[in-house]
Design a protein around this nucleic acid. Structure first.
Lengths: 208, 208
DNA sequence: CACCGTAGGCGTACAGGGTACGCCTACCAG
DNA sequence: CTGGTAGGCGTACCCTGTACGCCTACGGTG
């Protein structure tokens, strides 16, 4: 069995991640990644079937950085706090590589990292006495909320709140009075407040 | 001012939407849309700056189909029911064109359709006596949840619940016991239950 | 130590894709 | 009838992803 492979999947993934972080998602090209590695373009196809598989690798790498250990009772006493920590970890980790957000969230992925995250969340929910279908819905809701919130945060809030806060044109104000009003109120809400606030709503809903 | 434009933006948009619904997102090509309209490829650039703008047009068309009239008291008496109706409308409309989901959710859009939706939601929230920053967070949370849920639904649940439900391999079961258990419980939960269940959690959180 | 089969490595080439550019042509004012 | 204006589009270019086939390094065998 002559000639060992000279690259590892991990090298591939982090090279690709470097490219994305530097040149944005549009810059993620087989040629660019190959150049980053000092390898010929086609060399990549030794390690990856497809450009698709390369993207999957990037996503897995990013998601793999999520700390999925159960939050120790030291860090967070109540299950509410523990779930908040988990949600934050997901958001903060993905937020470290903003350009990969569309990738991570659009891709049809069956990520083991997300499965580990889900497993820990389910364990916390179980500890809170939430079971059966109720627990299924809780997990999906938390995940759905986190995904959507990350997206809104990084792709420019389509609610228009941010934009309206900076440019409250009177035309907009008259057609969307509530939106204009909310834009003003939104000025006092940080991204973090917003994210954690939404998590709190869900958790309130879970609390009997 | 000789020669009127022979196409309207609406024609462009619906041709593009036809292409997407037929050939999937990958089939959305300047050439394909042009062919659909019986026009030369470059003809499209009379109406659209960019492929990007074409995609925006598609997104706006889909989102424009959302009914953003306030749900009449006839349809839904309580504000909870009204908000549920609004969330459902968003989800159901986007679900009509599944291929556009990555587009609608990935794109950095400042959609007037979403603004109209937001305005109506804010009005309902105001009617429920929810004001100020609390209302901002409520809107963002509902929107974030809806976006994430739509995504999970159409891009293959990354929680793996669906996959696990059909293939509960023992290896997975032992490594992810809670996930395996939840997969079984998930079998009894329909997509609709799941979506509305998450909305209910948020609304419970909003109810004092 | 020579050799050769095997499997990794990569250069070339091609089929799409987006779009810049410039000519052609239909229309309307005079 | 005619000239100018602005829409319409064919051509051509560059940039992707990737199929294909040669080249080369290695390690077991004689």
């Amino acid at each position: 069995m002559p000639r060992r492979p000279s690259l590892t999947h991990l090298q591939l993934a982090s090279a690709a991640l470097d490219v994305v972080d530097r040149d944005g998602l549009a810059g993620l090209t087989m040629r660019a990644v190959a150049a980053q590695l000092g390898v010929s373009t086609m060399g990549l196809y030794r390690y990856v079937q497809d450009r698709d598989e390369l993207e999957e690798l990037v996503v897995e790498t990013v998601l793999g950085e999520i700390d999925t250990d159960p939050p120790g009772p030291g860090d967070a006493a109540s299950w509410r706090e523990q779930l908040t920590v988990m949600a934050r970890r997901l958001r903060d980790t993905v937020g470290t590589h903003p350009s990969t957000v569309p990738l991570a969230l659009t891709r049809r992925y069956r990520s083991t990292a997300i499965m580990r995250w889900s497993e820990t969340v389910l364990a916390i929910l179980a500890g809170a006495g939430i079971d059966g279908e109720r627990r299924v819905i809780a997990l999906r809701s938390l995940l759905a909320y986190a995904i959507g919130a990350i997206q809104l945060e990084h792709l420019g809030g389509p609610s228009g709140l941010d934009a309206l806060a900076t440019v409250p044109s009177s035309a907009v104000s008259s057609e969307f009075p509530f939106l204009a009003d909310s834009a003003a109120a939104a000025a006092g809400v940080t991204r973090d407040d917003e994210f954690v606030g939404g998590v709190a709503l869900l958790l309130d809903g879970l609390t009997p």
